[in-house]
Design a protein around this nucleic acid. Sequence first.
RNA 1: GGUCCGGUGGCAGAGUGGUGAUGCAGCGGACUGCAAAUCCGCGAAUGUGGGUUCGAUUCCCGCCCGGACCUCCA
Length: 447
Amino acid sequence: MVELRLHNSLTRRKEIFRPIDPEHVRMYVCGPTVYDLAHIGNARPVVVFDVMARLLRLLYPRVTYVRNVTDVDDKINNRARASGESIASVTARTLADYHADIAALGNLAPDVEPRATAHIAEMVMIIERLIASGHAYAAEGHVMFSVPSFAEYGNFSGRSPDELLAGARVDVAPYKRDAGDFVLWKPSSEDLPGWDSPWGRGRPGWHIECSAMSWRHLGESFDIHGGGTDLIFPHHENEIAQSVCAFPGSRFANYWVHNGMLVINGEKMSKSLGNFFTIREVLDKVPAEAARLLLIKSHYRGLLDFSDAALVEARKELDRFYRALERTKPGAAPIPASVLDALCDDLNTPLALSAMHALADAAMAGDAAAASGLRAAGAVLGLLQADPLAWFQGEGDDAAAIEAAIAERIAARKSRDFARADAIRKALTDQGILLEDNATGTTWRRA
RNA sequence: GGUCCGGUGGCAGAGUGGUGAUGCAGCGGACUGCAAAUCCGCGAAUGUGGGUUCGAUUCCCGCCCGGACCUCCA
């Protein structure tokens, strides 16, 4: 079997992937906090790990892909308070929108999509274990993780506790024993979501949910943990601290895979900066598949510059792929080695795409095996599964009118009335309809 | 300031210690009534200064530039 190699943030190098159980690969990816529409930056990890999951399923007999939903969070509370909408309504509506948006981008559902609010008991259990082993302490209704109790704290993100203190930009709460300590549990007033706990009515801190949900669904140690690079600190550093301390001897995640940020005009796209496009804004401009292709046209660890020009280019690239599949009909086939090799080298999607262009060239020339391989390759990337005709002609109820105009133009051409023929084409072009004359007749597509 | 990542043709974007993929755009040609699509061909790049080496875009060091993180973030 082909060896899969992944860049592991733990070691900062590419390593051969060796699952704990080769019969069952387990992957956890940090999912959305459901307080607002997802932006295209949020879509990058979803697409990257969707491709990862598809690849793993190709390589291993069983894969469990867990992607959580954070449905208890102060951003949600603030959003609900600001709009007057109930918290339950905000989270339910936002989650439904999220599902619709990422499905439109061609992502398969994860195997498990746990919600934080359904795992409070697991969180409480982990917190109790941390307190019992001296890694956490209760103070003023809060429970804090004691950073000095974990000697390896900071190793993962490459930080020393001193550096963290030097850079701290928050006020140190009085109930903290150490400035680096972080919240596991905090008290909730009556107007905020809360659960009864040994420390009073309260709600979880941000990081504990991932430790709880990954443990519940994947066990104390699992294979891959994914997320954006901006989560390395503090989120993932804290997850490791919590999980390793709560389950001594466990390794938590063996391979940490982080996607790079998406930038717009050189600056990170983020909600706090306000320079973001929602997924649906993007989908209003181009076919979803073009947006998906753009997201995997660059390697997942690098910065990705997202622009309208790049979207247009991605669409043109898909035009060529679909043109090849239109010329030569694909059948069932395994993924070509050139594409698989590229993907197995740390998910090198750009290299895989270049191999697919070679297949498209061959398919264009009539090579049926190449066409089949191209489509099979597309399946692993979540691309090229549409009918080529649907790709070129898309949605619309004007097909009959277009066909009628084409018939009229054919008649004009037959009588060598080229002025009339060109006028008809011009009229269609102005509607965004491009005509193509070829040996078998005239076809059309949308610009 | 600290830590980390990166700088490749007009743009996007891979790989590589030994004459630099791929895509988009551009240019020339074929085909076409004209186009489109397709095909053939062309031009065009490794931030900067050192070091190691027979040879560096690749490895090492300095510098410049950009970005991320430094307790909201994907």
